[in-house]
């Protein structure tokens, strides 16, 4: 823990300021140059309900704004889901895809694209299979007659492996000229299709999940103490664990549905936040939200502006996330118990 309790207020303020700043920076930057002053005018005009009918207006209001909002939403969602998973499983190496959510949702989307191209069907299938895969994981772990964390994680690996194989199968049979590029791009993750209709579709589920987890953050603290402690404090650990898992899963599935697979955020961001605000989930979860959002806006900005061709964001989050994780791993050994 870097800071003392009294500095915490200052830390929150700084993080929020960075988030707001990053959000606006992302509205100002892009391949199509718009003078900063004009961006401000468009935003204020848009807030008053009248977006100027110009190219710049369309770029800021229809391309950059929904994209930045979706960045923040997905970044916050994936990070808070990751932090919750890590708390519930008492394991810092756990991330939202551990229960098979990502592979399940990815399979659903790939299947949808194979059937009818990128459209609502793919989105719905992604959500359905994301949730289905967690149900399968849960059922499988129950077959052993116990609900231990280890059984859940192992079942998650099995279900993930099955869906990964099915994704490979779909890629194998997909038309290389027609469907395969769409599936491949989607599996690498992208905010390219971000729109207000996306926001409408997943905004409510992701926000509801985030709020739910934030409300439960004290209980996650209790869970991380162990089952016996939890019972003695009047919390049913099994039921509570399932509630948290369900919420985190729902968030992850909703994110994967609109952006494809974006790895590493749910794993790395909670660790960064632990360095800043400490282990206490009371602080860790809100901090993960903010830092996750900042990280995603920042990385997506690189993805869409670095070159004329768009870089898939899943590649960038892994390339930025993995070395950072390695650095943390080296400098903070022993702190993760």
């Amino acid at each position: 823990m870097i800071c003392k309790q009294k500095n915490l207020k200052f830390i929150w303020l700084v993080m929020l300021l960075i988030l707001v700043g990053m959000f606006f920076v992302s509205l100002y930057g892009g391949r199509y140059f718009i003078p900063p002053g004009e961006v401000g005018e468009i935003l204020s005009a848009g807030l008053r309900g009248g977006v100027p009918d110009s190219i710049a207006g369309s770029v800021v209001w229809n391309l950059r704004l929904p994209r930045a909002l979706l960045n923040a939403l997905v970044g916050a969602g994936l990070a808070v889901a990751g932090a919750s998973f890590q708390g519930v499983f008492k394991n810092p190496l756990v991330s939202p895809d551990v229960l098979g959510v990502s592979s399940g949702a990815a399979f659903g989307a790939a299947f949808g694209i194979l059937l009818s191209g990128i459209n609502q069907i793919a989105t719905v299938l992604a959500l359905v299979f994301g949730i289905l895969s967690v149900l399968m994981t849960y059922t499988l772990s129950k077959l052993r007659g116990e609900s231990s964390t280890l059984a859940l994680v192992l079942s998650g690996m099995i279900i993930s492996a099955v869906f990964s194989a099915l994704i490979s199968l779909i890629k194998y049979v997909a038309d290389p000229y027609d469907k395969l590029p769409a599936i491949t791009y989607w599996l690498m993750g992208s905010f390219a299709s971000a729109s207000y209709s996306d926001l409408k579709l997943v905004g409510v589920p992701i926000l509801a999940g985030i709020i739910g987890l934030l409300l439960l953050r004290w209980r996650i603290n209790v869970l991380s103490l162990g089952d016996e402690e939890a019972y003695s404090l009047g919390v049913n650990p099994v039921r509570m664990r399932l509630t948290v898992i369900a919420m985190a899963t729902f968030i992850t599935a909703a994110c994967v549905t609109v952006t494809g697979i974006i790895g590493w955020v749910g794993l790395v961001i909670p660790h960064i936040c632990r360095m800043i605000v400490g282990e206490d989930h009371k602080n860790l979860l809100p901090a993960s939200c903010i830092v996750g959002a900042i990280f995603m806006i920042m990385v997506d900005m690189i993805a869409r502006t670095a070159t004329a061709a768009e870089i898939p964001i899943g590649i960038l989050t892994a390339l930025v996330g993995a070395p950072f994780f390695a650095l943390l791993f080296k400098t903070s050994k022993g702190d993760w118990q």
Partner: peptide
Amino acid sequence: NWKKVTMEQVIA
């Protein structure tokens, strides 16, 4: 051959 670009780039 083909590379994916952003909508903003197309607008530019």
